[in-house]
Design a protein around this nucleic acid. Structure first.
Length: 569
RNA sequence: GCGCCCUUAGCCCAGCUGGAUAGAGCAUCGGAUUUCUAAUCCGCAGGUCGCAGGUUCGAAUCCUGCAGGGCGCGCCA
């Protein structure tokens, strides 16, 4: 049950006007409070405390209210009945929306022939969690790994291979497109080295850079040799991406379709733009003007063809919109990328509007902040390179392993992997995704306090108690201790929290909720023993029921974050 | 130059409904375990919420200005 919503609606109905319901920071004031008296008294020119005294008896009549009282300048504090809390908490969570939407979710955005680095962490983890939340609420989502598989980086990789293997058939005039070229496949590790090497060379060698530009345009234009070579290394890269997705325990993408797929729709999109007279020649390129008279910020045009005839990402993103329109026809498209792409999406959404593809309210860009090192600059490894995702995962695995050995425990490898992943993912999810945050390897691998392992540990302990206790019938209410009461009320805030996380597109809301919930659980666990000697059967049964309810809610939250609960830890 | 974002405890962050005494974690100090799993719990200490005005019964939260930091502004994605 969404307790807040339930209480709020009941109070509004009773009073006949909309009261603002709050949860007081200080629990001793009550379970809820409302400033309705202060707001209404002002409107009607009355004294707030007098007005509060007038409406308070009405609130006391509500069947879930234990007591109501007036405090401070005119707050009305409400305490709920224990039996109501008990009854409400026993119901399983159910928050399927009445209006399910089709939502395209664009996150991940991995690049072909470029291994994943720390920059892909947030888009993957946060995107996956937002996707899970949307599904949990009942929306139909279609997740896209919109791959960087058709731009300049492809031209650079091919140019690099050409430079090192000029004798390969892909570069010959008499290239035979029907032959089998699988023997040219390279290892994923080797493929990973091409792009950085090519970029380094292009920085100093303008001729090489120009060749890469030309190759990019030719690749896009259908050059048989370049396309055959592309088809040699693309599957290698896709396989690596899939392995990383599995390693991160994020749901498989519904569609691994990127720029290349979008570019298949160049003809209808170009036709649409020309019919509307939107393509304008400018410095040898063709662009779409999206500036409005009301703009007071810089608003450059959107590039459709660059001066070499290649389609940059501005264009492929328009085509991707077209593809999604004619296939999914979604109610909403949510893009999750680095915040530095904000302007690009503003431009893209303007094109969507003037072409009539999608109205602006159906398009949404969530820009996430940068993961920085302790120096405040983007996180790098000790050798000064951008940290690879696999390296980071390995580093945390090592720390967990060390920790396990120190504590004298003996845990299987899968459990260590699970704990390490929780440390990494929770650390990412708990931060406001729109802000930069500092990635401190020390604190990510410390496992105490506000961490993923703490969350898992709490769940493992609950499971352990429930397992030892065996299957018990659900109990009746005797009387709630303060610990149980606080815990159950937090559990009754779960649905509101999930809804808020979705509405605000904010994973930290669910992560911080999970942490708060764990704190209450651990306090309960510590102060309310169950299987110890001297606990009477009724108390034991009640505490077991609380434990079971808490475990179910926590397990759901853990699942929404894409974490797994180990058997033991 | 133009535009957007950020500034809360020694460190790292919550505070996404404008409410009552601003909260966690880490680090420091002290206490609780032959564990229903101590990766836990309890406590001490730590703050002019960047600065200055304004709106309001009430401001960390809204508005204005200033300072410091970050980011963006056509042929990379």
């Amino acid at each position: 049950m969404n307790l807040y919503k339930y209480v709020s609606e009941a109070i509004n109905e009773k009073l006949g006007f909309k009261a603002n319901l709050e949860t007081p920071r200080n629990r001793s004031f009550g379970d809820f409070s409302t400033n309705a008296a202060m707001v209404m008294a002002k409107k009607e020119g009355k004294n707030p405390r007098d007005f509060a005294a007038e409406i308070m008896p009405k609130l006391s009549e509500l069947d879930f209210v234990e007591s109501a009282s007036i405090a401070g300048p005119g707050f009305i504090n409400i305490k709920l009945r224990d039996d109501f809390i008990w009854y409400a908490a026993a119901k399983p969570h159910d928050m399927k929306t009445q209006n399910p939407l089709i939502i395209d979710m664009d996150y991940g955005s991995y690049n072909v022939a470029k291994s994943l680095h720390i920059g892909h962490l947030r888009t993957s983890i946060v995107g996956d969690t937002l996707n899970r939340i949307a599904k949990y609420i009942g929306h139909k989502t279609i997740s896209y790994n919109h791959m960087g598989d058709w731009g300049r980086s492809m031209g650079l990789v091919i140019a690099w291979i050409k430079k090192n293997h000029p004798d390969w058939p892909f570069f010959k005039d008499d290239f035979n497109p029907d032959a089998d070229y699988s023997k040219y496949a390279m290892s994923p590790e080797e493929l990973d080295t091409y792009y950085p090497a090519a970029v380094a060379l292009a920085k100093t060698d303008e001729k090489f850079m120009e060749e890469a530009r030309i190759i990019t345009a030719k690749l896009q234009g259908g050059h048989p040799g370049y396309n055959a070579l592309y088809n040699v290394f693309f599957p290698i890269s896709l396989k690596s991406m899939t392995e990383t997705v599995n390693k991160l325990n994020i749901m498989p993408f519904d569609k691994n379709l990127g720029e290349r797929n979008a570019a298949l729709y160049i003809e209808p999109v170009e036709k649409m733009l020309r019919e509307k007279n939107l393509l304008v020649k400018s410095d040898g390129a063709e662009v779409i003007i999206v500036k409005k008279d009301t703009d007071n910020a810089p608003m450059p045009p959107v590039m459709f063809y660059n001066s070499r005839g290649a389609v940059p990402y501005d264009a492929t993103d328009i085509m991707a919109l077209y593809y999604r329109k004619i296939t999914d026809n979604p109610d909403k498209i949510i893009y999750l990328t680095d915040i530095r792409q904000k302007l690009h999406f503003e431009q893209l959404f303007r094109v969507a509007e003037i072409t009539g593809l999608f109205p602006p309210e159906n398009l949404e860009h969530i820009g996430y902040g940068t993961i920085n090192g302790s120096d405040g600059k983007p996180f790098k490894t000790r050798d000064g390179n951008a940290a690879g995702l696999n390296d980071i995962i390995d580093m945390i695995n090592e720390a967990v392993k060390k920790r396990v050995i120190e504590s004298g425990k003996n845990l299987p490898k899968e459990t260590i992997d699970t704990i390490a992943l929780a440390a990494l993912k929770f650390n990412d999810l708990m931060h406001d995704l729109r802000s930069d945050y500092i990635f401190d390897p020390e604190s990510v691998t410390s496992f105490e306090g506000r961490t993923g392992p703490y969350i898992l540990y709490t769940a493992v302990r609950l499971n352990s108690v429930l397992k030892k206790a065996g299957i018990k019938k659900e109990s009746k209410l005797c009387s709630l201790s303060e610990e149980e009461r606080n815990l159950l009320i937090e559990i009754l805030d779960f649905e509101r929290t999930v809804q808020s996380a979705f509405d605000n597109r904010a994973t930290d809301i669910i992560a911080n909720y999970a942490y708060d919930l764990c704190q209450l659980i651990n306090t309960f666990y510590h102060n309310c023993p169950i299987l110890r000697e001297g606990i009477n059967e009724e108390t034991k049964a009640q505490r077991l029921t609380v434990t079971r309810i808490a475990r179910d809610t926590l397990a759901t939250a853990i699942d929404l974050m894409g974490l797994k609960i180990p058997e033991e830890m």
